[in-house]
């Protein structure tokens, strides 16, 4: 993703830039409202998401937020604020922020919220892979039911992708565990069962079932195939 980071606190900006770039994003940094406004005006269509601090030395980030929402560009905005006054949070959502993150925050939470905001601003692509009544967009990693996006969490999406990527939509537990957690990540033995159960709950209304295959793993099945 290409991100615009608007943050005036130098220490925090340096750390965020490093983290976001390490996560594979392209990031432009603006420490002032004026600079941010300039970047937005010139590169409007280039950004997938804006990370916007509210308290900036030359004004409030909300003025840029209003400008963004007044344009016809569908870009996600995640607001960073140390002003955790509850009225402020509601106001930020009212003026068009997709989400807010109160300082200080963990980098994991930043990543999770970036993913959630990104998902909200993806429009349905032309080319998708059909999975029963669902459409999967491998480019943006999103799942659609008609014109609506099916909201899947990160691990649920990985599980879904793992199953549809596998031959016959079936995969072993070990394979799924590696896809979800990698080799260096700890997780409990029942983690896969938990995520399968949650994904099952989200797919069942659309005619898709996740069956347990004894001694092997799981298989995704579309009921109307029978």
């Amino acid at each position: 993703m290409r991100l615009l980071l608007v943050e005036d606190t130098q220490d925090l900006a340096v750390v965020l830039l490093k983290h976001l770039r390490q996560s594979g994003h392209t990031v432009d940094h603006a420490p002032t409202l004026k600079l941010a406004g300039g970047l937005w005006s010139s590169e409007k269509d280039a950004y997938d998401l804006i990370i916007l601090d509210i308290e900036l030395p030359d004004g409030l980030g909300t003025s840029l937020l209003k400008e963004v929402r007044a344009s016809d560009v569908a870009v996600g905005v995640l607001v960073l604020t140390a002003r955790s006054q509850i009225e402020d949070k509601v106001y930020l959502l009212d003026v068009g922020a997709d989400d807010y993150l109160t300082k200080p925050f963990s980098l994991d939470e930043l990543d999770a919220r970036l993913r959630a905001v990104k998902r909200r601003h993806i429009s349905k692509p032309v080319v998708t892979q059909s999975v029963g009544p669902l459409s999967y967009d491998p480019t943006n990693r999103t799942v659609w039911i008609g014109s609506d996006q099916l909201q899947l969490r990160s691990q649920e999406l990985k599980l879904f992708e793992s199953l549809i990527d596998s031959n016959g939509w079936s995969a072993s537990k070990e394979y799924l565990f590696d896809r979800l957690y990698g080799l260096d990540q700890d997780a409990s033995a029942n983690a896969i069962e938990v995520h399968v159960s949650r994904l099952r709950g989200k797919l069942v209304d659309h005619g898709l079932e996740i069956e347990a295959v004894r001694g092997y793993g799981y298989r995704l099945r579309y009921r109307l195939d029978e």
Binding site: T9, D11, V15, E55, S84, K103, P104, L107
Partner: peptide
């Protein structure tokens, strides 16, 4: 909170 944010991240 702003300096704490920098410390934490």
């Amino acid at each position: 909170k702003t300096p704490i944010a920098a410390i934490l991240t």
